[in-house]
């Protein structure tokens, strides 16, 4: 498998038999160009993040120096410790791991089920329901927030994580469903047909054939969902009351206010940046770890070929 991954993600150009040195040189030139672009783009993309890292290590007086400086004179790691002194930051992080983790699991699983239904089955009303599903993407969340609040209030779910988790298990939202549907549509139908002829049931086909082929899409969906849940602010803010129950999305907003009030009016964005870094670190690790699934590929060739 691993070997197949390697070869699969190799560029076609590389695999072309290299007959003369001219082509070789041309190819070398092409690779150099690609690396240059990738490195320059990386630097550009990294800038805001790097700035956040460096600022998180600055002393207050360094933050607004002119001319502007990127690096702190001496890195102040104490900023990170201070974040935990002035707020229940660790608690907030843990809450978010639980909430975002469960919500992501539910959302990806149920969105895959729904997307598969839209992509593979024929039944009356399918296209209408799909149209309706897409339509829900278009109504701004601001105006459904209060009705949702009242709904969960009636259910007695306020100040609990249920409103943040339970709905995810019912479809995971139009975005994910649409995404999974589009992805399943690209899988050749012969896969299902072959399995059906072998006598496999719908659920087994979905579970044993379709899902394993969809790992890049599932991982992408999971990352997108997790980041969204991790950062979400307004809905959890309206739902949760107890400070200890806050998720990190609310926590960071609170921290913004707290940071500007810690026994000085000096800019304390360094603490905000440190908090922001700690908020980002878990998703960064997650993203880095999930990467290998991006290139796992859909081993369609093996089945089709």
């Amino acid at each position: 498998m691993a070997q197949e991954v390697m070869t699969r993600s190799t560029t076609p150009a590389l695999r072309k038999p290299l007959t003369d040195s001219g082509a070789r040189r041309q190819q070398l030139l092409g690779r150099t160009l690609l690396y240059t672009i990738a490195i320059v783009a990386s630097i550009l993309f990294m800038m805001p993040f790097a700035w956040t890292v460096f600022s998180s290590l600055k002393s207050p007086s360094e933050l607004y120096m002119f001319p502007p400086s990127w690096l702190p004179t001496t890195p102040r790691f104490a900023n990170y410790a201070e974040v935990f002194d002035v707020s229940p930051f660790g608690r907030w992080l843990w809450n978010s791991v639980i909430v975002a983790g469960l919500a992501t699991f539910g959302a990806v699983l149920s969105a895959a089920l729904t997307g598969y239904s839209f992509a593979r089955f024929r039944y009356p009303g399918r296209d209408l329901i799909f149209l309706l599903t897409l339509g829900t993407l278009m109504l701004p969340a601001e105006v459904t927030l209060i009705p949702l609040y009242l709904l969960f209030n009636k259910a007695g779910w306020l100040d609990s994580y249920r409103p943040l988790i339970v709905p995810s298990f019912f479809g995971g939202g139009a975005f994910l469903i649409f995404m999974m549907r589009q992805f399943f549509l690209t899988l050749p139908r012969d896969l299902d047909e072959a399995a059906r002829i072998d006598g496999a049931g719908y659920l087994r086909i979905f579970w044993q054939i379709i899902l394993p082929l969809s790992i890049p899409a599932l991982v992408t969906a999971a990352i997108i969902t997790f980041i969204g849940e991790w950062n979400s602010f307004l809905f959890p803010y309206i739902i949760l009351n107890t400070k200890e129950k806050f998720t990190i999305g609310i926590g960071i907003k609170y921290f913004q206010t707290i940071a500007s009030n810690i026994d000085s009016i000096e800019p304390r964005e360094n603490l905000l940046m440190a908090a922001g870094m700690m908020m980002t670190a878990p998703i960064l690790v997650l993203f880095f770890a999930a990467q290998r699934y991006f290139v796992q590929g859909i081993a369609m060739s093996g089945i089709k070929g």
Partner: peptide
């Protein structure tokens, strides 16, 4: 590279 490209997306809005 993939991680670097994705970094802006990971930078918290507050930051």
């Amino acid at each position: 590279f993939r991680t670097f490209f994705f970094l802006p997306h990971l930078t918290p809005v507050a930051a």
